[in-house]
Design a protein around this nucleic acid. Structure first.
Lengths: 126, 126
DNA sequence: TGTCTATGTTGACGCTTGTCGATACAGGTG
DNA sequence: CACCTGTATCGACAAGCGTCAACATAGACA
C-alpha cells in the first residue's frame, strides 16, 4: 500500500546459488526478525489465487508472462491486479511495461532461496 | 474447530522422496485445486509466530519438541496453542502427549514436499 | 481426594485481507 | 484529436485472522 516495498532478501552472487534470508528451518530456531522476513514470502504464496498467478508466471515461457496470459483465475481484473501487486511487494515478481501490455517475471533467485529454506540444499532450479 | 482436518498431501513411500501434492510451480500453472492445497501449507508458514514455532520444532533435537521448549516467542500461551493447532491442521506438525507434556513433531515428508514445490528436486533433507 | 502444573478451548476484540464496481491512467490506432 | 483496450487505483464491504483473558481439561503427585 504505502509503497512498493521490496524485501531485502537476496544478494545473489551471479552464477551462484541464492543466498536466502535465513538458514534452513531445521538448522536452528528462527529469530523474530528472520521469521518476519521469511513469513512475508510464505504469506504471499498463501493465497490460492496468488499461488495460481505465481505458478502461471513461473511456468510460462521464459519465466515471464503478460497479465492477459494469466488473468483467467476466476476473479475480477482488479483483484488480479491487486494480487500481482502483493507478489511484487513480497519480492517474488517483477513487472515491466512493454507497449500496451505489462509483463510479470519471477524473481529468479527467490525460488531457490525459499526452497533452501525448507530443505538443506538443492539445485538452482531448472 | 470442526476437527483436526489434516491435509491429504503425501503418500510417502517409505524410504522414498516425498510425493508432493503438486508439481513444481515452474512446471505448469497450478489448477485451482492444487493451488488450494498448496496455499494452505504456505499460509500456515505465513505468520511470523507460526514460522518461529515451526522452526523451533524442526530444529529441535530429534525433530520434536515439548511446547514448554518452544513457547518463548513473545505471545501468550493460548496464542501459542492456537498457532500450533493451525500448523497441525495444515499437516505440518503432529502432536503426542507424553505424561504431563505435549510434544510436537515435524511431519517428516512435508519439508521435502514443499521444497520440491519450489525447486525442481532436492535431497530428502537432513 | 485435592492441588499443582502444562496445555487446550472459548469468546470477544480490532486489524487485516480478499473481493468487487467504479474510475483513472497508459498506450496504441484511426 | 477521439476512441478503444489493457492495467492500476480507489472506496467500500464482509470475512478471516491474531491476540488476549478467562476458563476448562489432563496428568502427576501427595
Amino acid at each position: 500500500m504505502s509503497n512498493t516495498k521490496v524485501l531485502p532478501l537476496l544478494e545473489p552472487a551471479p552464477g551462484e546459488a541464492a543466498a536466502p534470508c535465513c538458514p534452513p528451518v531445521t538448522e536452528r530456531p528462527f529469530t523474530a526478525e528472520e521469521a518476519e522476513t521469511a513469513a512475508r514470502m510464505f504469506k504471499a504464496l498463501g493465497d490460492p489465487v496468488r499461488l495460481r498467478l505465481f505458478s502461471a508466471v513461473a511456468s510460462h515461457e521464459g519465466g515471464e508472462a503478460c497479465v492477459c496470459d494469466i488473468s483467467d483465475v476466476g476473479v475480477s481484473q482488479p483483484t488480479v491486479s491487486h494480487h500481482l501487486k502483493k507478489l511484487k511487494e513480497a519480492g517474488l515478481l517483477t513487472s515491466e511495461r512493454r507497449g500496451t501490455w505489462v509483463y510479470y517475471r519471477v524473481e529468479p533467485t527467490v525460488l531457490a532461496a525459499m526452497g533452501q529454506l525448507l530443505i538443506k540444499a538443492g539445485p538452482t532450479a531448472a
